Amino acid sequence: MSDAKNFYDLDELREEVFQNKISKAHIYNLCKRGDIPTLRVGRRLLIPSWYVEKLLHGTEEGGEFTTTAARLRSV
C-alpha cells in the first residue's frame, strides 16, 4: 500500500501551509467561501492533498495558481 496522504484536515493544513499563523476559524471561512476546495465527510472538512501540494510548491511563475497561493499564504 502507498503511504501517500490523500486528504488533510484543517489542523494539518494550518500547520503545514500556514505555520499556525492564522486561526482555524479563518481557514474554515476560506473553505466556506470557496477559496480552498474541500470534501465534507460527516462534520469534517478535508482538503485534497493535490491542493496542499500546490499551495506548498506553487506552479509556473506568473500562473494563476501561484498568485492565489501567495495571496492565501499572506492572509
Rank of each mutant, 00 (worst) to 15 (best):
M1H: 10
M1C: 06
D3G: 14
K5G: 04
N6F: 15
Y8M: 04
L10C: 10
E12C: 01
L13R: 12
E16D: 11
F18R: 05
F18P: 08
N20H: 04
N20D: 03
K21R: 11
I22K: 02
I22S: 07
I22A: 05
S23C: 08
S23L: 03
S23K: 01
K24P: 08
A25K: 09
H26A: 10
I27L: 05
I27E: 01
N29D: 15
N29E: 15
N29P: 00
C31H: 06
K32S: 12
K32G: 05
K32T: 13
R33P: 02
I36Y: 04
P37R: 13
P37H: 13
T38G: 00
L39S: 14
L39T: 15
L39Q: 15
L39G: 08
V41P: 09
V41Q: 13
G42Q: 09
R43A: 08
R43N: 11
R43F: 09
L46T: 07
I47T: 06
I47V: 12
I47C: 00
P48N: 03
W50K: 15
W50Y: 15
W50F: 13
W50V: 02
V52R: 05
V52I: 06
V52T: 11
V52H: 02
L55N: 06
L55S: 03
H57Q: 10
H57A: 06
G58V: 13
E60V: 11
E60K: 11
E61L: 02
E61I: 08
E64D: 11
E64R: 14
E64Y: 14
F65P: 08
F65N: 04
T66R: 13
T66F: 09
T67H: 13
T68Y: 13
A69P: 03
A69C: 03
A69T: 14
A70H: 09
A70R: 10
A70N: 14
R73C: 10
R73T: 04
S74I: 08
S74T: 09
